[in-house]
Structures are given as structure tokens and as C-alpha cells.
């Protein structure tokens, strides 16, 4: 048996191996029970003892070499196969992802939650109130006497039975004050209604956020201080506030609060109509008539209230030009914000 020629054949065979199957066939051919090397070992005993040892060594070396070769070729083939597999599985990563009907909460809810989060942090309790109200809670207790011209400031939608759709969240103040005892710190966000011709800027319904604090010795300075914190929470720090006198029947003094335009930093832009300011809040010290209407002694207690239009803030923030979109179910819009 010519081990040398076997070895040569073997090495040659390895060069031609392409697949793991071919490699296995080679392994069987050389290392299998009926393989060339086993056959060689079997034939050892037929050899004279002086050759036996040398031949045995040759066969052992050959087996070792074959095993090494097998291992290295296997490694090479596996590597190649993985490479091919990877290539077969190549995808176009620029194809679009699967689009499911991903859900989301409404943009107004997001704003509402943000406002409530800030209010809670400032120690206000979140309260809620009905949208169908009576004249007492929506007007009279808020110092809108019957027939008073201040009632014209808010065109009201009326319902049967002397009821109406609340024109402002201030009605919630009255209900909360009736239910609670001072000190009272409440915050509410809710839907209000006005009798308006429907346009891109005005709708029959919109949403207000409102805060109220009644306690002993609440001052105008407190109002300014708490509002400044509130604005920091909503817009981030660094924006100036500006207070201007204004009139709401349920506060005295009453004021409007402007925040430095967050879009242009006060330089003037389209959003702030080149004024550098955004008119966002109404505020004031709770009118003694309001306190009296809910049985609080205005000699003992003072307080402040502030309110803002939520829809307007959302529209400013997201560049929405039509308030009706906020009430629409158009998923294209809803998924965009």
C-alpha cells in the first residue's frame, strides 16, 4: 500500500471539495470504517514487524493530517455557507415598514395631561365639572348679574329647563368651592361652548384650562409668582411674562397675561403677529361677590384664578390653522400630531 500516493490523492481531493456533503463523502472515504486509512490499519498485521511500525506511524500521521484538513475545510465551507446564507437573506432596508393602525391619544388630551401635570406639581387638585350648567353656576355666582352687559361677552347656548352649556370652566370653580372648604387649590380642563358662527378660528366648542387658589392672604404677587412657574412648566424657563389690565366679572383686579413669543423669542413673527407676545391667559383676584355667592367670607379669604384656551395653544404649537380639525376624526391629521 502506497501511503504516499494515497496522501497525494487525498490532498488533491480536498482541493476540489465544494460542499459539506462532498466533504462528508471524503471523510467516509478516508476515515470511515471501510475507509482507506482503516483499511490500511487492517492490513498492518499482514506486514512484517519491521515495516509494521513505520507503516503504523505513516497511517497515524496521515489520519491526523486528514482530520486537520477536514476540520479546516469544514470551517472554510461553513464560513462560505453562512456568507451565502447571509447573501440570500439580504433585504432592501429602504422598503417601508409595516404600517398598522397605531393608536394614540388625542392632541388635546396630550395638552390637557401636560397642563394637569404642571398643576399637580404646583399643588393643585384636578377637578371636573358638568358641561350642562345652570345660570347660577355659570353666571350669577360668578358675578354676572341678570341682564348685565358682561353677559354679552359670552354668547350662550341655552337648553330646556333653564339650563345652558357652560361658557367657561369658571363654572367648575363655583362647584368646587361649594363642595370644599378653604384653602382650595383646584385646576380643571374641560370643554366649553359659545354660540358662534363656525369659522376656522371660532367653533361652537373649545377647551379651557383654569386654576383657582382661595386662602388667607393670597396676593397679586402670588398670582404673578404661581403663573410664572406655570408658564415655566408649559413653555420652559426663560420667557418673560407681561400683565395687562383687563376685565372679567369674576375677578377684580382682572388682567390678561402675555408670554414672550416662544416661537421667535420676542423678536416678532407670524405666529405672534409681529408683536413679540402671545396672549394666552386671563387672570385676576377672585371677586368678593364670587366668594360671597359660595358662602366664603371675603374679609377672611382672598384668592386668584387664571384660565387659558387650550385649543389655541395647541394650534399655535403645532401650526394648525383650523380649530375644526381638532374635533374631526380624520386619521391622517390625528396620526400626524
Amino acid at each position: 500500500m502506497d501511503v504516499r500516493s494515497i496522501r497525494e490523492e487525498l490532498l488533491k481531493s480536498f482541493e476540489n471539495v465544494r460542499t459539506l456533503e462532498e466533504l462528508e463523502a471524503l471523510r467516509v472515504r478516508f476515515l470511515g470504517k471501510k475507509g482507506v486509512i482503516q483499511q490500511g490499519f487492517k492490513k498492518l498485521k499482514e506486514l512484517p514487524p519491521e515495516e509494521k511500525k513505520a507503516m503504523g506511524k505513516l497511517l497515524n500521521d496521515l489520519r491526523k493530517e486528514v482530520e486537520e484538513r477536514l476540520a479546516s475545510v469544514r470551517e472554510r465551507l461553513l464560513e462560505e455557507e453562512r456568507k451565502q446564507q447571509v447573501e440570500r437573506e439580504r433585504i432592501d432596508v429602504t422598503m417601508p415598514g409595516t404600517e398598522l393602525a397605531w393608536g394614540s391619544t388625542h392632541i388635546l388630551r396630550k395638552a390637557k395631561e401636560e397642563l394637569q401635570y404642571i398643576a399637580r406639581k404646583l399643588g393643585f387638585t384636578i377637578v371636573d365639572g358638568p358641561e350642562v350648567e345652570d345660570d347660577f353656576h355659570n353666571f350669577e355666582a360668578l358675578n354676572f348679574p341678570p341682564y348685565h352687559p358682561s353677559r354679552d361677552m359670552q354668547d350662550t347656548l341655552f337648553l330646556p329647563g333653564g339650563l345652558l352649556l357652560r361658557t367657561h370652566t369658571s363654572a367648575v370653580q363655583i362647584r368646587a368651592l361649594q363642595r370644599k372648604k378653604p384653602p382650595v387649590r383646584i385646576f380643571t380642563v374641560g370643554r366649553v361652548y359659545r354660540r358662534e358662527e363656525v369659522t376656522a378660528r371660532k367653533f361652537l366648542a373649545f377647551h379651557q384650562a383654569e386654576g383657582l387658589w382661595i386662602d388667607k392672604k393670597v396676593s397679586i404677587g402670588h398670582l404673578k409668582g404661581v403663573l410664572a412657574e406655570f408658564i415655566k412648566g408649559f413653555f420652559g424657563p426663560g420667557y418673560k411674562l407681561r400683565f395687562r389690565p383687563s376685565y372679567f366679572p369674576f375677578v377684580e383686579p382682572g388682567m390678561e397675561v402675555d408670554v414672550e413669543c416662544v416661537f421667535c423669542g420676542g423678536k416678532g413673527c407670524k405666529v405672534c403677529q409681529y408683536s413679540g407676545w402671545l396672549e394666552i391667559l386671563g387672570a385676576g383676584m377672585v371677586h368678593p361677590n364670587v366668594l360671597r355667592a359660595v358662602g366664603y367670607d371675603p374679609e377672611e379669604y382672598t384668592g386668584f384664578a387664571f384660565g387659558m384656551g387650550v385649543d389655541r395653544m395647541v394650534m399655535l404649537k403645532y401650526g394648525i390653522n383650523d380649530i375644526r380639525l381638532l374635533f374631526d376624526g380624520n386619521q391622517k391629521f390625528l396620526r400626524s400630531v
Partner: peptide, 11 residues
């Protein structure tokens, strides 16, 4: 659960 919230008008 994959649902989109709407706030529609109550009138």
C-alpha cells in the same frame, strides 16, 4: 390597543 382617540363635537 391600536385605537386613535377623537374628541368630536357634542352638538
Amino acid at each position: 390597543h391600536g385605537l386613535m382617540e377623537v374628541w368630536t363635537l357634542s352638538l
